[in-house]
Design a binder for these strands. Structure first.
Lengths: 151, 151
DNA sequence: ACTATAGATAGGAATAGTACTAATTAGGAG
DNA sequence: CTCCTAATTAGTACTATTCCTATCTATAGT
């Protein structure tokens, strides 16, 4: 997946190719980890000092709707993260440190599409995430659900 | 599921039973639909005019961590909704009108737990949601992904 | 190239959600 | 029943996200 491929997808949906948009995509491409909207903004700001948060949010939303980026870390408000949807996959998210790891399993493949059509729904997307504590945060931490911080 | 059952669960986790908490639970019990945090707040406000948003959010978060309520409509920031977790289930969410319908399928049952233990993760929760357009919103609406409003 | 225009942007304002702290209170011990 | 203590709350301050609008610009059609 490179910038040209993505711009092509944008064109197919009659979306314009603006320099800001290109930079947002490049910021995601350059990072090996999923980024928050804030991180994307600060990265793009180096090239476009005047870019607004709104532009970043709007475009991440657009790219997400087009399936070009995945929005992950759903249960935790704020700090949800975006990554390029290189291949379709879901994530494990650590409730303690917030890091995410890809999960090689998609429930949708196993989910019979019959039930959907019966009810007249037109399905366009789905989300699957696993929450817990990663190996690093797990050791010796007896986490009390009632007093956990964020989610 | 009634109030007593829920208060029992709270006690088991060494959480106090405050009148505010009880009202938040009752607001969810009284509604046949999932509610937003704002809706819960305005409902509880009738009894406790001075209750703060913080109290509502904090308690919905607590109840959610304890598994007493489900937080749904994850992909849309703001306006995520809460409902009592009467039985474990996931939802279909209409991207147009925002209404939600239970889905009688849980990917977790089918998801081999082997992969998790191998990597040292301790899994405590998961999320699965299906997005699309319901029968009512679907008819005659050729929805353009690029210009969709919210998600 | 030139122009018209649908779509995109910047900037500020509004709103939803979160964090902090002093004061209050539930629930247990005496 | 009264006191004690730690959990919980109200109120306020703050942050992240979205909305609004005048202005600008990337593209398509001449």
């Amino acid at each position: 997946m490179d910038v040209e491929e993505i711009t092509q997808q944008l064109k197919e949906h009659a979306c314009r190719l603006t320099p800001q948009r290109r930079m947002i995509v490049q910021a995601l491409l350059a990072s090996s980890e999923p980024l928050t909207a804030q991180q994307v903004h600060s990265s793009v700001s180096r090239t476009f000092p005047n870019i607004s948060f709104d532009t970043v949010y709007r475009n991440l939303g657009l790219l997400s709707r087009l399936g070009i980026v995945n929005r992950i870390n759903l249960k935790v408000k704020f700090n949800c993260r975006f990554e390029l949807a290189q291949e379709h996959r879901h994530h494990f998210i650590c409730l303690s440190c917030g890091s995410s790891f890809p999960v090689s399993y998609c429930p949708f493949e196993h989910y019979s599409s019959k039930a959907q059509t019966d009810t007249g729904f037109r399905v366009v997307d789905h989300a699957f995430e696993v929450y817990g504590y990663c190996a690093g945060c797990n050791v010796g931490n007896h986490v009390d659900l009632a007093s956990a911080v964020n989610p």
